[in-house]
């Protein structure tokens, strides 16, 4: 099973040179730590920045410079700042190439649920609905099962959904999977030491297994 850091590390392998990328809160934020240094990419923060840099040192902290998770950050050279309407214009307009976000559930046709647990959690969707409705390429970082062991890769989402038919790829602590155009989770890679049978038993939605499934490489 992968740690959160390893999930982030595996997702970083999907990043391509020249991409503008939006990273969600949680595991997706960690992806920035593993993007190879020879790639030129720009990280977008939906509160109004292109060019997120590393966390600041103690004496460089600026309360007027935060990311969408409200963490203090820095700007890389060549950054740009803008207002919230402009920020979502570039998201909706299809200018952001890759969106990486967390999920509570994903269905086999690519629906995602990550904003609400009725009666329990009322935090809101933030920018997630705009991102999933607009991005061409959406990768989800998530745990394969809940703490109680229930599969989070489902036939249909049980929680209120954030977007329909939008997820392309999923990296969990057990596997890398892609959503088939006609529906179903295509198993692409296994976490080191995890068997196909284990992944099958922990995937409630339709799992598509074609040929030998390789282990992830780091």
């Amino acid at each position: 099973m992968l740690t959160k850091e390893q999930i982030a590390q595996r997702i970083a392998q999907e990043v391509q040179n020249g991409q503008y990328i939006n990273l969600g809160i949680g595991i997706p934020t960690l992806v920035a730590n593993y993007i190879p240094e020879d790639l030129e990419v720009v990280l977008q923060s939906e509160n109004g920045l292109l060019g997120i840099g590393p966390f600041p040192t103690e004496y460089k902290i600026d309360p007027d410079l935060i990311n969408a998770g409200k963490q203090t950050i820095t700007m890389v050279k060549g950054s740009g700042l803008f207002n919230s309407a402009e920020s979502f214009a570039m998201i909706r307009g299809g200018h952001v190439h890759l969106t990486i976000l967390g999920a509570m559930e994903v269905s086999e046709n690519g629906d995602i649920a990550n904003w609400k647990i009725p009666g329990k959690m009322v935090k809101g969707m933030g920018g997630a609905m705009d991102l999933v409705a607009s991005a061409e390429n959406i990768i989800v970082a998530m745990q394969h099962c809940s703490r109680s062991g229930d599969s989070k890769l489902l036939k249909e989402c049980s929680l209120p959904i954030t977007g329909i038919r939008c997820v392309k790829k999923i990296v969990t602590d057990l596997a890398v999977l892609e959503i088939a155009p006609e529906g179903g989770f295509i198993l692409k890679e296994r976490a080191p030491g995890v068997s196909v049978e284990e992944i099958q038993s922990k995937t409630e939605g339709k799992l598509i297994i074609e040929g030998e499934i390789p282990e992830m490489k780091f």
């Binding site: 207002n83 920020s87 979502f88 214009a89 809101g124 933030g126 997630a128 609905m129 705009d130």
Partner: peptide
Amino acid sequence: EVDLIPQGTLAERVR
């Protein structure tokens, strides 16, 4: 009372 609105929709409604 609370209206929860996608952030980009909120921004564009204000704009």
